[in-house]
């Protein structure tokens, strides 16, 4: 898989998205991340591994704990791709407006 595929696969899970949403508010330990979810700590740890391998989160060592935080520019590639699509649509429709306005048959209408 390329980077974009890996990112999308990692995001294609509601628990992992909820974890990212929590980390958007700041660093958290595995115990803290487990609290809102009715699933086991090992299951949360598996989700964290997927997110880490996709480059979406980073972990540091703090004694026995390995707190997680969002990786800087985690969604950069996806963001660039989507921004290209968005800007592309804007510009395309502007051109279509001009093309439709320039259609000679339109100018004959009252």
């Amino acid at each position: 898989m390329n980077g974009l595929d890996t990112t999308l696969a990692a995001l294609a899970d509601p628990t992992r998205r909820a974890i990212l949403a929590r980390l958007a508010r700041g660093e958290a330990t595995v115990t803290q991340l487990c609290a809102p979810f009715p699933i086991s700590q090992p299951a949360i740890s598996r989700h964290l591994r997927v997110l880490e391998e996709a480059g979406l989160i980073v972990r540091r060592v703090d004694g026995q704990r390995r707190p997680c935080r969002l990786a800087p520019d985690a969604l950069g590639e996806l963001d660039a791709y989507l921004a290209m699509l968005r800007k592309g649509m804007e510009r395309s429709y502007e051109r279509l407006d001009q093309l439709l306005a320039a259609n000679p048959s339109r100018k004959e209408r009252p």
């Binding site: 999308l8 995001l11 294609a12 899970d13 509601p14 998205r17 969604l75 996806l78 963001d79 989507l82 921004a83 699509l85 968005r86």
Partner: peptide, 14 residues
């Protein structure tokens, strides 16, 4: 294709 793709599409302020 999935909720994640859509969420990311919208989160960029499309």
């Amino acid at each position: 294709p999935d909720a994640a793709t859509r969420a990311m599409m919208l989160s960029t302020g499309m």
